[in-house]
Design a binder for these strands. Structure first.
Lengths: 261, 261
DNA sequence: TTGTATGCGTTATCAC
DNA sequence: GTGATAACGCATACAA
């Protein structure tokens, strides 16, 4: 266990000042190529690793985002997480995943932790979208985005799949292929997303001038009667790939009807 | 966006010194109940949230662990993650989940980030268990535990399911119930875990004095031929519940043969 | 029991 | 292009 090598050690080893080392770390272009090489060599040789705590304390920023998922075992959320991660990476941010496991206490603890860590932003699929907790964070200056959830007053940032549009697209597709007797398999209707898809399906029928009776709804009550882990966790196997982008232009998901979340 | 309220603001608002505030935060027992209440009130009123960067910089510790999973969408890993999280919580640590997505580059980036963050310990199911990366971390003083993987020289810490024992238990169970013609459905044999289970199955037969021929192996080549997301991700649906504890006393998993990882 | 003073490792502002 | 130096916010001896 090496006695933590700092920026000063590197500086000394390279025969420069600590400021120069900091510069090759943060603004490599401002330091002479020769010295830069020397410093980089010293860094490699000493195995220096920048202390983020100190950096963050001084610099203010953290280059870290967090996504608090409702259930790390739900494929929907892991898919979204994957997309979030990709986007974060591209923007030069790292992503920490936290699993509230649908537990309000855990969620609170994680948000507190993330707040203390001063992460740059938080994505969350909350246990309760209307929780007062988010206001505090936002007031402190930490952006919070609700994922696949909305506050009832619609006052907070959120991204979500447009399930109405999803249902509409699916049924429109069938209609365009000449089908006139269509079944919607899904449920239970107590789930907002399922209701939305149903609404979309009906809208598609209306658009095509078909009677509402053309749609047979098969309520699977999936979440209640299915057995095994899936049911326990509140989902059934399904492979949606689309990841929501922003509120104003929701991504459509042609398979939206397959996933409970 | 409030102008970040610090420990000094709290102190002033409570009419005490910053040291006292720090004490009620870290050693509440050492400060007089009256002042403690006053400080706590000030904290609540001002909405003070301790800056972990500063705390960590000064204190050295971070109270954060990390688990780098190979595939956040694989139920096996989410199950393990859940167990890790529970244990971490109980010990007063928070857990950050990172998803390498079986990508060596991502894994490297996350380890670097975690190193910079000076997390207290790292659990990881690595892309390559023999990677030289772990030595660096361990040298620096960050404990690293391999999950469900081992180095070929067995030199590094690891926790893993004892698949040999799993296979043995499963087949022994069948034998004890009077079965003599047994089939093992699983594969491909190129996977270490599958081979281990097979070995365990054979051992069970031997123990019972049955010929090896009593076991029919049905190699499903699951990971290669299965279609859809599961295959893509390298797993098939399965519900193991057991979580490995420590190396010396591996948890048995009666369903171990159902999950590829 | 509480206050004063110092330093953690880094970044940023200046002179040089 | 580079070096000295002052914060950042908190924890902790040590003094009061």
């Amino acid at each position: 266990m090496k006695p933590s090598v700092g920026i000063r050690d590197v500086a000394q080893h390279a025969g420069v000042s600590n400021a120069t080392v900091s510069n090759v770390l943060n603004r490599p272009d401002v330091v002479a190529p020769a010295t830069r090489q020397r410093v980089l060599a010293a860094i490699a040789q000493l195995g220096f690793v920048r202390n983020e705590s100190a950096r963050q304390l001084r610099a203010g920023r953290s280059r870290v985002l967090a996504y608090v998922v409702l259930d790390a075992a739900n494929p929907f959320f892991t898919d979204v997480a994957r997309g979030v991660e990709d986007a974060a990476r591209e923007a030069g941010f790292a992503l920490f995943l936290c699993n509230s496991a649908s537990d309000d206490g855990r969620e609170r603890e994680y948000l507190e932790l993330l707040h203390e860590q001063r992460v740059e932003g938080i994505l969350i699929t909350p246990v309760d979208a209307d929780s007062a907790r988010f206001a505090e964070l936002v007031n402190r200056g930490t952006p919070v985005v609700l994922v696949d959830r909305e506050t009832t007053d619609g006052t907070r940032c959120s991204v979500a799949v447009d399930d109405v549009l999803g249902g509409e697209l699916a049924v429109t597709h069938l209609i365009e292929n000449g089908h006139t007797r269509i079944a919607m398999v899904g449920g239970p209707m107590s789930i907002q997303q399922v209701r939305d898809r149903h609404e979309g399906a009906l809208r598609a029928l209306a658009n095509a001038g078909l009677p509402a009776g053309a749609l047979t709804v098969l309520d699977t009550k999936g979440l209640q009667v299915a057995e095994g882990r899936g049911a326990e966790r509140g989902w059934l196997a399904c492979p949606p790939r689309a990841v929501p982008r922003r509120r104003s232009a929701p991504t459509t998901c042609s398979r939206s009807a397959c996933c409970s979340r």
